[in-house]
Design a protein around this nucleic acid. Structure first.
Lengths: 156, 156
DNA sequence: TTGCTGTTGCGAAGGGGTTGCAGGAAGGAG
DNA sequence: CTCCTTCCTGCAACCCCTTCGCAACAGCAA
């Protein structure tokens, strides 16, 4: 309670740590490091970026450990990933979203590689249309849309 | 002319071969093999599938050559690719579409991995919405949507 | 504090894709 | 038809990202 509102990063870390403990996982320094990094991360870092971030503050941590920690957190639903045109990005799941199974939609700029979050319902119309015409059950959160962001479109 | 309408595969191969020749590329057996395979392919094969198909009829052809041939054909705009959640799929570009720069939209079933083609305009609404709200210029053809196809949704 | 067991670090292996090089063939010149 | 230049191919080595096997370590419960 002491950290709530004052240090959202620490609060997030504690929340995830509690979640890990509840599910019988051990709380270790490397796990705290990955969660801390994800909590501080803006946007949707790749494994490479997460590992680089972690290595700055906790040198010596092995890349394998990052992968395994992300895997563990993913099993708990604490982190989510999106497939991009090249690579995969990870991010902490929003607690409110993970509770009801919702996710947000992503789009990636093919020029600057930045990932932006989109409102969850933006593909609802397409989802209904695909369900009706093709019987295809669209899962909008699994793959990022591709295009050019405002900045890159202006420049190019 | 003798093949037109009777053997669409051969006609397609000849069309592409002519295109290659026009652009100063040489006509070789491996290139014919790849184009022939793409012309016969239903759907959107990955490099692995293309190579397997080619190997059945032209044993000894190297995987590297498949990659390089696809690269060459892509530069000419003869083939297009889509990024999937895992891997990349290739297919011959529709001549009519490549003329005006249009492409169709793809969706992939995350269970059976099948790729289905969608009407080109299905993301137009989303594209307009993204342009207005985020300034994001959506390019609907570059990444496949993800979800469950009718058959897999029924089974699961 | 002790002991069980989940985790970590490390090296090695695996899978997908790319690159450098030397030999070989396409296709234009003569 | 033959020669010659240049491009293309096959091969092998390599690179990048991710996973695996194993021995040592460290949570955490008793």
């Amino acid at each position: 309670m002491s950290t709530r509102g004052q240090d959202p990063v620490a609060a997030t870390v504690e929340r995830v740590v509690a979640h890990l403990r509840e599910h019988g996982h051990r709380i270790t320094m490397p796990r705290r490091a990955v969660v801390d990094t994800l909590a501080r991360a803006e946007g949707h870092p790749t494994v490479e970026q997460i590992a680089a971030d972690v290595a700055e503050r906790w040198p010596g941590m092995h890349l394998t450990t990052v992968y395994r920690t992300l895997e563990t957190l993913a099993e708990l639903g604490v982190v989510t990933h999106v497939h991009l045109a090249a690579g995969t990005a990870y991010h902490l799941a929003d607690p409110a979203e993970s509770a009801d199974g919702a996710h947000h939609v992503h789009a990636q700029c093919r020029s600057c590689r930045r990932v932006i979050d989109l409102p969850d319902g933006i593909l609802d119309g397409v989802r209904r249309e695909l369900a009706a015409s093709e019987g295809f059950a669209l899962e909008p959160h699994h793959v990022a849309l591709s295009g050019l962001c405002r900045d890159c479109a202006d420049e190019g």
